[in-house]
Design a protein around this nucleic acid. Structure first.
Lengths: 341, 341
DNA sequence: ACCATCCGGTAAATCGCTCGACAATGCAAG
DNA sequence: CTTGCATTGTCGAGCGATTTACCGGATGGT
């Protein structure tokens, strides 16, 4: 039995091809009576319009490309999970599907990111994978392609983005620690993204220029993957090279958790001896002991908002986008007032 | 500037439309000289054929649908991560793209799983999300649609699958524990999938019929999400209701880790007082202390193999598929010979 | 009774590419 | 000098929808 086409539906329902098409697209032009009679036939055969034909005629694939970083354990990353969930939920509700890609070297080298849009396989691209080396993204400056960086920015390039405000986060975090009296602070930074660099620089700036007395900040790199293991190693390094630290600030919760682990393994009480603070507010942050003070980043919301924006770009409702989403301070047990020594 | 089409390339290169098409598809019909001249023009304009048109004419979308379960933290699941990575790697190397979907109730209710294939948006579907309630999958029995269960089976339904051999795993695990002398074993089972049920039943069967003396098995459900938390609670329940257990077998590593955590929190030495064993061999299993004995499931390989199979189904090289992949025993520190008491 | 408006539906021109059937060309064999 | 057969390239008929311009008839104001 051959697959039914819109033509078969037209014939059987006694209406024209165009009428069926209009019904299928909920065009107001068609009366309810006609609509019902057509839909009856559609139901009867469980007809489903061919998406390639649709895409060809309408010049839109109703598909969004989502590109995630090529981390060894990408999908085990709750950070990405939240964003993708947000994107998925929004995209689906608007009738869009998601084409998944991983930014492997092959993906970059073969310019898949471009071909995906050039071939119209996707109407727009949500890029979660950028780092400071993603220079090839320049092709999207002033291009007709709909492109959006998700939770990243690219200073110096004219690229659309939706991101959490890392600069504001840094400020909030610094102010929290400074307010507790800390003046010797270790920073575990992420340096392979621009947002990570912004965070580091702003954190240091605020510490240096604190009215009640500037603080000394020593920073180390927490590693490419911003992982717990990286945080553990970074904490070790930090404590060794800078005696007298009273607080450790990590650029994300996973590294902060790693740092806390090191402190526990080496018998430094948190927060009595050392305060620890993270960024993101991942679920587990509330469950460790003591609870991890952190800056809440609503990544699900970043996903939602990113999707909203790319959809607006596609529809032409906006032509550019540079959103910074707010963050908030979450105080738990891991940070405390500096002890008089 | 209008987007270039194959026609423009034909005009500029001086060849016919069909020739360009054949070149683009690497058809042997075309000589190298012609090929080169056409490709020069293609390169010049960075031309990329419209995929909708291509799909319409060729009746193939070169796209695979991957459906993942609707867990609260789907993407934080390393289990899925491995499988998806395997699928992605294979699919990409064969020129296929991946369309991601989550098996939400909305997805099920609206029959998206069917529409995806009926509309030819995807050439085939890899379903990682099935549980014992996925009765709606019956539509794929004897249907023309290319459908494959990934790491699941559906006894009683004629559905293609590629899965690890859970029955063999259960046997191997049981034999390991029985061989160490355990005769009172607690089992933390997963009961919302058929593979989970198979594992439980085979494990119990082997224990009961062990030649050297049958063992007593008490089992509890580890919860819908097979999580660490579920394992923790299950261990508590198990130890409370069955005194004298010398071993705890969990249907996956995450639950085993949860059980180990409970045992540590309650001062039972592993493996001296209680042996613990898991299934999967997730990365962290090697890093906990003591290392977790487990049955190795190569999920990345499951992804690779699943993708190979669905591609063969699509090409018509095979018409059905029921692969069971081998597993292997990994002995670490968490299991030991039962102590004389 | 007349013309302007609406309303609901239709005809037909695309959309950009694939692929099977056919044509042209060259060359060895009869 | 035909004929036969590769070898290469071209024609053109779809593929299955969308969408714009058009059309016939009912409505309604004067």
């Amino acid at each position: 039995m051959k697959r039914k086409t819109i033509k078969d539906i037209a014939k059987e329902s006694g209406f024209s091809l165009s009428t069926v098409s209009l019904v299928l697209n909920n065009h107001p032009r068609i009366s309810q009576a006609t609509r019902d009679r057509v839909m009856a036939v559609v139901k009867k055969y469980n007809f489903c319009p061919n998406s390639a034909a649709r895409g060809l005629a309408s010049k839109s694939s109703k598909t969004l490309s989502v590109v995630v970083p090529n981390l060894t354990r990408v999908f085990s990353d709750i950070y990405l999970g939240e964003i993708i969930s947000g994107i998925y939920e929004r995209a689906t509700s608007q009738g869009y599907k998601i084409l998944l890609d991983i930014a492997t070297s092959q993906f970059i080298k073969s310019q898949e990111y471009l071909k995906l849009l050039a071939s119209r396989r996707a109407d727009g691209m949500l890029f979660i994978a950028s780092d400071i080396h993603a220079d090839y993204l320049s092709v999207f400056e002033d291009s007709p392609y709909k492109f959006l960086l998700v939770n990243h920015v690219f200073p110096g390039k004219k690229l659309n983005y939706v991101s959490v405000d890392y600069t504001a986060s840094a400020r909030t975090a610094a102010e929290h620690l400074l307010g507790l009296g800390h003046r010797k602070i270790g920073l575990i930074a992420g340096t392979n993204t621009f947002t990570g660099l912004q965070f580091r620089d702003e954190f240091i700036r605020v510490c240096k220029s604190w009215p009640a007395g500037s603080a000394q900040v020593t920073w180390v790199d927490g590693g490419e993957e911003w992982s717990q293991r990286g945080g553990y190693a970074a904490a070790a390094k930090l404590m060794a090279q800078t005696p007298g630290l009273t607080a450790v600030m990590a650029a994300n919760d996973r590294m902060a958790l790693g740092a806390m682990r090191w402190l526990a393994d080496n018998r430094r009480e948190v927060p009595e001896a050392v305060s620890v603070m993270g960024v993101d507010d991942i679920q587990i942050a509330a469950y460790v002991n003591p609870g991890l003070s952190t800056i809440r980043h609503d990544l699900y919301q970043v996903g939602i908002e990113s999707c909203n924006r790319i959809l607006q770009l596609i529809k032409g409702e906006i032509t550019e986008c540079s959103d910074l989403l707010p963050t908030s301070l979450v105080v738990r047990g891991s940070t405390g007032r500096v002890q008089a020594s």
